[in-house]
């Protein structure tokens, strides 16, 4: 079995076997990232396909095998942003105060992990595109608001309000399902 380092070296040489191994090894993780940014499976697959092609074409930009995972995630995020760029409208979201939020541990423990992830994925998918992208970038990828603003070419305030809106929206959705 090829090590990660060997797979990386093979991908650098455009070796098809190494690329196939890379794909098989990381497809679920990276497709999951695509899924979080998408509201349909078709969109997720389009983003995934486009991102992976970019990854294999430009993998020579990565110097160390240990950096590949983070680099691929950045490629995916950028691809998702570009995918939705024309569709995203960053509406002026309301400034409603968030409801008190506390995790209902009882319900969470009743849900198995798979069911919980189904719910979280579904709630994410229901978010408007702009809010979903900002939420993912801030919460899941760890971008700061200035970084998000620069990447999406929006104002920092817009990034903050979109995040606020996303959290509020998720909170309400989870509440409806008695998770919060």
């Amino acid at each position: 079995m090829l090590t990660d380092e060997e797979v990386f070296r093979g991908c650098l040489k455009n070796d098809r076997k190494a690329q196939a191994t890379f794909y098989q090894r990381y497809k679920s993780r990276f497709f999951g990232v695509c899924w979080r940014y998408s509201n349909t499976r078709e969109d997720a697959e389009d983003i995934f396909q486009e991102a992976l092609i970019k990854v294999f074409k430009h993998i020579k930009e990565v110097r160390d095998a240990r950096d590949v995972s983070a680099w691929v995630r950045r490629i995916i995020v950028n691809t998702a942003i570009n995918h939705y760029r024309k569709q995203v409208v960053f509406d002026d979201v309301t400034d409603d105060v968030l409801l008190p939020f506390d995790t209902n541990e009882d319900i969470l423990t009743q849900l198995n992990n798979k069911e919980l992830m189904e719910v979280l994925n579904q709630v994410l998918a229901e978010l408007p595109n702009g809010a979903r992208i900002v939420f993912n970038m801030y919460v899941m990828e760890g971008y700061t608001h200035p970084e998000i603003a620069a990447q999406l070419q929006i104002a920092e305030g817009t990034s903050k309000s979109q995040l606020f809106f996303a959290k509020k929206y998720i909170q309400e959705k989870l509440k409806k399902r008695d998770i919060v």
């Binding site: 098809r16 690329q19 196939a20 794909y23 098989q24 497809k27 679920s28 993780r29 497709f31 999951g32 990232v33 695509c34 899924w35 979080r36 997720a44 697959e45 995934f48 396909q49 992976l52 092609i53 294999f56 968030l98 409801l99 008190p100 939020f101 506390d102 995790t103 992990n113 919980l116 992830m117 979280l120 994925n121 919460v139 899941m140 606020f164 959290k167 998720i170 909170q171 989870l174 919060v180």
Partner: peptide
């Protein structure tokens, strides 16, 4: 803060968002 709890909820499951793509995707990528 409620927003912190939502963040924690998602961040605690960050590795559980894995999804399996369609089998035919590799052929298209290749």
């Amino acid at each position: 803060k409620p927003e912190d709890n939502i963040e924690k909820l998602f961040q605690s499951h960050i590795n559980d968002f894995d999804k399996m793509p369609d089998d035919s995707l590799w052929a298209d990528i290749e």
